[in-house]
């Protein structure tokens, strides 16, 4: 097999512009065969049904034959963009995403490093197999726990009352709601989030630690020079993927607490869509909002990836011209 391609610093094939198509096909067909099952599944269960999303441009009702639904083109989008509540929900969503990135995102990484640093194998696996458990509780139960602990009639306030202190209203305070949400998310999902980073840590060559230790590198320097760079690509990858999902911050968690703090604090895009699409009997509005989320996600992913390239990282896809 002729291997005349240009390679980058990783020794990966980079530029093929000069290589004829037939040669490339002959050389790459095993790779194409490997991706056939995935492409087939995506076509059948995502791309073909995605054609149904044209209802974003219709006045759609599922109870009449499809073509009896009139085309309204961009009216659904115009309705969304003309609605102040939509922008409120969008702004709230972005605030929650930002808080999530700042306050939640680093925690699984730190937890993973902590688990990783435990010497005793039994303690390590014990902690590891306990941390992820809250992921399996539903939001109804998690919010219930928070209510029973921090709510107005909860354990904390009972304690304060018994000691003659003023009660604190944590669960119905729109100002604190942002942090309650982050707190709940940390409790439920941080442990589960460590798993991917633990996997990344295993992929660091032990020999690197050994030689660093030999060279007298202390624990801090080993963390800084070996561990973190070793999992950096995965951290960046997770960050970019999270950005692609930036307009989804959760649904049930917000719906459950929306009444306690009010929509001004708790309305996010998904609850907005629920009330304006589902409850309001407007299927098209929901799909239109979904398309909007996808487009925004795409832009964010592309931008984040570009940014990663500027920092010399690979991101999701590599820059082909380096």
């Amino acid at each position: 097999m002729a291997r005349t391609a240009v390679t980058d610093r990783h020794g990966e094939l980079v530029a093929y512009r000069s290589v004829p198509f037939v040669t490339r096909l002959r050389r790459d067909y095993p790779l194409l065969v490997m991706i056939v099952p995935a492409v087939a599944l995506m076509l059948l269960f995502i791309y073909i049904p995605l054609l149904g999303n044209v209802i974003a441009f219709m006045d759609y009702v599922p109870f009449v034959p499809f073509l009896d639904n009139g085309w309204v083109w961009f009216e659904n989008f115009e309705r969304l963009f003309a609605d102040g509540d939509f922008w409120l929900a969008l702004a709230n969503t972005l605030v929650f995403t930002a808080l999530n990135l700042l306050l939640f995102f680093p925690i699984p990484v730190m937890l993973a490093l902590f688990v990783h640093s435990l010497l005793h194998p039994w303690l390590r696996s014990f902690l590891q197999s306990v941390l992820y458990l809250p992921h399996f509780l539903s939001w109804v139960i998690v919010v219930g726990f928070f209510q029973q602990t921090l709510g107005s009639a909860g354990v904390l306030n009972q304690f304060l009352a018994q000691n003659g202190l003023d009660p604190v209203n944590l669960m119905q305070n729109p100002e604190l709601f942002k942090f309650m949400i982050v707190g709940q998310t940390v409790w439920k999902e941080a442990g589960w989030g460590t798993i991917i980073f633990l996997a990344a840590l295993t992929a660091i060559d032990d020999a690197l630690y050994e030689s660093a230790a030999m060279d007298g590198a202390g624990v801090g320097r080993r963390l800084w020079h070996i561990t973190l760079p070793g999992i950096r690509p995965i951290i960046i990858l997770m960050l970019i993927l999270r950005l692609g999902d930036a307009l989804s911050v959760g649904f049930e968690q917000f719906l459950l607490q929306r009444n306690s703090v009010g929509p001004a604090a708790a309305e996010v895009l998904d609850t907005y869509v629920y009330y304006h699409g589902v409850v309001a009997g407007n299927w098209s509005v929901g799909v239109a909002a979904g398309l909007f989320k996808g487009v925004v996600g795409l832009i964010l992913i592309l931008a984040a990836n570009k940014f990663a390239h500027l920092l010399g990282e690979d991101g999701i896809y590599k820059s082909t011209r380096r």
Binding site: I48, P49, L50, L51, G52, N53, I55, G294, L298, I301
Partner: peptide, 17 residues
Amino acid sequence: VLLTFLFAPSIIPLYVV
């Protein structure tokens, strides 16, 4: 692949498939 992460089909057309 990436686009499937961003855009999800709705239930009804998927059911039809």
